[in-house]
Design a binder for these strands. Structure first.
Lengths: 233, 233
DNA sequence: TCATTTAAGTGTAAAATATACACTTTGATG
DNA sequence: CATCAAAGTGTATATTTTACACTTAAATGA
């Protein structure tokens, strides 16, 4: 097993890895990016993008690197999720995984399912395949976290385009929270918070009244936050 | 450096440790349990109880073991906080730490500051000494987490005795949230939730009207939760 | 035993926030 | 120019949150 003896320690050490739960949204249901494994164990099973943490990287930097390398995702929102350390979570040897969750704009990159000739695919949350390792558990944790967080932190915007309509924003919240929201009340509330900038631009080529575009004004949001404002949906 | 060659790996591996932020409360300000380091690095500096994770332990089990071994704390509430992986967070070598935070009842155990002849001491949050390693950062993270969590999860009870008065409970929330709370509104709200059991027992030997004791009824709380009830202070 | 001290315990009115709900407008299409 | 489809908009009611002060009870000591 241990062919190479370069690194020697007095006590056994688990390997350190990171796995990423990547959420995306394009209007319908919330989606998750999975890769098909090419090697054993769990060959041909779906799994989260993941990999080992290098000697000179924090886990967060490793997670970002892996996201770019394996899934072609760049400049995404990323946040540490949880560290999974069950002794037998990997059948090969002990590997602990510091999991992250990422929110990406599905339009901002097309599945460059080439890179490592890995097959990458978006799955709807309601129809996920059975996942390799303990990745099912990781995903469950990530969904919980996202649901909890989205109501008191404006992270939803990370999933949308720079410009979005209020209906798109509402659909996103409905998808994440899995509950219908009243249109008028939603608009009243979210606009009342004061960090959405109405743009002088509307949808084009829609066979109905065109909706106005808005953008999330980060600067204003920061200022509000510093004045004690607290986002809450 | 590497005297012992028992464990050999193809790639370098950081050591895996865990550190615990232990909160306690006895009526005034929120307190934190620290140990004085006996060895270099940071000899004689204050630090969080911590240690390495064994081969057959999850990080949570390691955290509990260390809490018991080093701080004499048993059966405490514990929750994973965050994983700190800065490459140079330990001057000796790379050690990543899965940090936990614990809530303990200060009365339930007296500082058995013997065990390892380690000096353990409670510090008020407002007058913490400078800490070893990145423990200051860990503590800051833990305080944030506690503040955030206490409002939407009934974890405060872990810091109190089995029986407590409503005034004690209120003081605790005031200490954690660092804000005064209206007595009548607090009582109305917390009693209205329905999971506090009024006991047929009052304070004794107090030179004023004796306060009634209450206890947190876990069973009722669970039932309420399952019916969709959502704690929120 | 009675006056004093101290915190416990209690209710209501006003303000703010959340909810429920339906019609008009606009742009594209045929 | 009629039709279709979703955008956009306001109000009344219910609920929740807030602000606020006096009476009660237990011990202490004069």
């Amino acid at each position: 097993m241990k062919q190479n003896t370069k690194y020697q320690y007095e006590f056994p050490r688990p390997a350190l890895a990171t796995d990423c739960v990547i959420f995306g949204f394009d209007g319908g249901e919330l989606k998750l990016l999975l890769l098909e494994r090419e090697k054993e164990p769990f060959k041909n099973k779906w799994a989260l993008p993941g990999g080992f943490v290098f000697e000179d990287e924090t886990t967060e930097i490793a997670a970002k690197r892996i996201l770019t390398e394996k899934a072609g995702v760049k400049n995404m929102f990323i946040e540490q999720l949880y560290t999974f350390s069950e002794v037998d979570r990997d059948p090969r040897e002990r590997i602990i995984s510091v999991a992250y969750f990422a929110l990406v704009n599905k339009h901002q990159y097309t599945l460059m399912a080439g890179r490592d000739t890995v097959t990458a695919e978006w799955f709807e949350l309601s129809s996920l395949p059975k996942l390799a390792f303990d990745h099912g558990k990781i995903v469950k944790t990530a969904i919980q976290r996202l649901k909890g967080k989205v109501s008191y932190q404006p992270i939803g915007f990370e999933l949308l385009d720079e410009k979005f309509t209020l209906t798109q924003l509402q659909s996103l919240y409905e998808a994440i929270l899995e509950t219908p929201i009243d249109k008028r009340n939603f608009r009243k509330k979210i606009l009342g918070m004061g960090f959405l900038k109405a743009l002088n631009e509307k949808e084009k080529n829609v066979a109905r009244k065109a909706a106005r575009y808005y953008s999330f004004d980060k600067k204003t949001y920061k200022e509000l936050t510093q004045k004690g404002f607290h986002f809450e949906l």
